[in-house]
């Protein structure tokens, strides 16, 4: 464990807390994006440049864009007051959990030895396409589900017969006035 990664992880923890407790949602979203950006650095330093690129461009970039546009579309962020108590209970809860976390992880993993090796291709591309082909199919399916899901959820509300009649009446009335 080198010092740089450790400090990056500590910073990420701080940003996570900020994302949870900042009052302004846009700032929360930006804290989350910063956390993802730092995560990308950690991934890069752990010999995983491709995952780092995805983390940076898709998670820190695209998801933040999604968040910010929805926040802008709804424009009601200051009307939802978060409860006060979670902020005061949080340090205590975090400390308690952190201690338990420390003890459990130490007990379970301090004598960890990597064992067994999985099938890996000779390059990243060969591994992703050749070894994890089924996941690529799954990705395609997930993207379809997302596209159709968003289309279905944001489609024009279906009008009931009554509403249609009303709308036509209003239209007729408007034309008659002319």
């Amino acid at each position: 464990m080198d010092f740089i990664n450790l400090s990056l992880l500590v910073l990420m923890t701080g940003l996570a807390c900020a994302a949870v407790f900042l009052r302004d949602l846009v700032r929360s979203a930006i804290s989350l994006a910063l956390m993802s950006a730092l995560m990308a650095v950690v991934l890069y330093r752990l010999n995983s440049p491709y995952a780092a690129v995805f983390e940076l461009s898709v998670v820190a970039g695209l998801i933040t864009v999604l968040f910010v546009s929805v926040i802008a579309l709804t424009k009601e962020e200051d009307q939802v007051r978060e409860a006060g108590w979670p902020l005061y209970v949080f340090p205590l809860a975090l400390a308690a959990f952190g201690l338990a976390d420390l003890l459990v992880m130490r007990a379970l993993f301090s004598s960890y030895q990597p064992a067994g090796y999985a099938a890996v291709g000779e390059s990243f591309g060969a591994t992703l396409w050749g070894v994890r082909s089924l996941d690529i199919l799954g990705q395609v399916a997930v993207i379809f589900a997302g596209v159709f899901g968003v289309l279905a959820l944001l489609r024009e509300k279906p009008q009931t017969a009554r509403q249609k009649q009303d709308a036509e009446k209003a239209k007729d009335g408007g034309e008659k006035l002319w």
Partner: peptide, 8 residues
């Protein structure tokens, strides 16, 4: 290579 495939 493998874990990056998972993560992507």
């Amino acid at each position: 290579f493998l874990t990056q495939s998972y993560i992507i």
